[in-house]
């Protein structure tokens, strides 16, 4: 990271700490804000959050590693999370996943070359009665078919 980038990041986190407070319980909202803005939480940001909350960087890292919606490395602009849990599985998740993989030319866990899409599995997202379901960034799509999934992706492209 460049020095100016670091300074901006520090300012940004100081602002977040002012808003959410210096308690340990402020950690998640702060991390979520950084994630929302930067699509990931850079190494330097983790250390700054730790410094400003007076905890240790590894504690921040531990929390990030626990939550699938927080990540330390940049991912694609659209993060596609397909539910892999049993209800969706029974309702045809396998076909949807194949169609998505074919359409994007990557497998689960990967990011497209143009950094547009990242493909991941998620566990139950609470749409079991309307599966198969997926989440793209913060929006939920349900009752998917292979065709519908491909169409949704194409609209985003």
């Amino acid at each position: 990271m460049l020095v100016t980038e670091k300074n901006n990041m520090t300012e940004e986190i100081e602002e977040l700490v002012r808003r959410y407070g210096r308690e340990r319980s402020s950690l998640l909202p702060i991390l979520q804000s950084i994630q929302r803005k930067h699509k990931h939480i850079p190494d330097f940001a983790q250390q700054e959050v730790a410094r400003l909350l007076d905890i240790h960087p590894v504690e921040v890292f531990s929390v990030i590693s626990f939550y699938s919606f927080l990540n330390t490395k940049p991912k694609g602009r659209f993060i596609v999370r397909l539910c892999q849990t049993i209800s969706c599985d029974l309702q045809g998740k396998a076909a949807v996943s194949k169609a998505i993989e074919r359409e994007l030319g990557i497998t689960f866990g990967e990011t497209t070359k143009d950094n547009k899409f990242t493909l991941e599995y998620a566990n139950c997202v609470g749409m079991c009665d309307q599966g198969p379901a997926m989440i793209i960034n913060e929006r939920v799509y349900f009752k998917l078919t292979p065709e519908k999934a491909v169409q949704i992706l194409n609209e985003l492209k």
């Binding site: 190494d43 983790q46 905890i55 240790h56 960087p57 590894v58 504690e59 890292f61 531990s62 590693s65 626990f66 330390t72």
Partner: peptide, 20 residues
């Protein structure tokens, strides 16, 4: 107060790890 180690990841992948 050094804080080198913490639990990383979750579920059956949990292990004790260092920063990054």
């Amino acid at each position: 107060e050094v804080g080198v180690l913490e639990a990383i990841d979750r579920g059956d992948k949990t292990h004790i790890g260092t920063f990054l």
